[in-house]
């Protein structure tokens, strides 16, 4: 969560509000913030940290581990209409890739603003596709496999 907090400026620029959710109580969130997070990132975690003590929220999102009694690492991008545009769920041993998260937000925001679609490997500045009858069977003329690389 410190890694997300460290990128607050970037998320603010994209207009993204963040909610962190775990099965710890809000009291424990306070202790973690004061004793560790605030020492990792100046100001600590800058968005609400939600207490999912019963696992009810995690169950709704399919990330609650009944045996472990915890919410595993799940990340959901929700658009202004309340629709989940992207979701990524990881088991506890591996952390998130922040750049990929930002890329997905940028891509969905671009799609929403323009109606264009983002082919594999798209990052801002790379070509987008404009779906329509003229593009059928012609993607090869405007998109190369090399574009899928970073």
């Amino acid at each position: 969560m410190a890694a997300v907090a460290a990128h607050k400026a970037e998320l603010d620029e994209l207009g993204v509000e963040v909610l962190a959710i775990s099965t710890n109580s809000h009291f424990i969130h306070k202790v973690w913030q004061e004793n560790e997070l605030s020492k990792m990132v100046e100001g600590g975690f800058p968005w609400p940290m939600v207490a999912d003590t019963t696992g009810a929220i995690g169950r709704l999102y399919g990330v609650y581990d009944e045996q472990g009694g915890v919410d595993i690492r799940g990340r959901f991008i929700i658009d202004p209409d309340g629709v989940i545009q992207a979701m990524e769920v990881l088991t506890p041993t591996v952390g998130r890739n922040f750049r990929e998260l930002i890329r997905q937000v940028q891509a969905y925001q671009h799609a929403r603003a323009t109606g264009e679609v983002m082919p594999a490997g798209w990052v801002p500045g790379k070509p987008t596709l404009k779906p329509g009858p003229d593009l059928v069977g012609k993607v090869w003329t405007v998109w190369k496999v090399e574009n899928a690389g970073d």
């Binding site: 509000e17 959710i21 929700i78 506890p92």
Partner: peptide
Amino acid sequence: FTKVKLADYAGKWIMLCFYPGDFTFV
């Protein structure tokens, strides 16, 4: 301490981040 309702965020881009617990390492 406050109460958070997802419905209050209508009209905004939101990122929900579930994580296994405070004081974990990753």
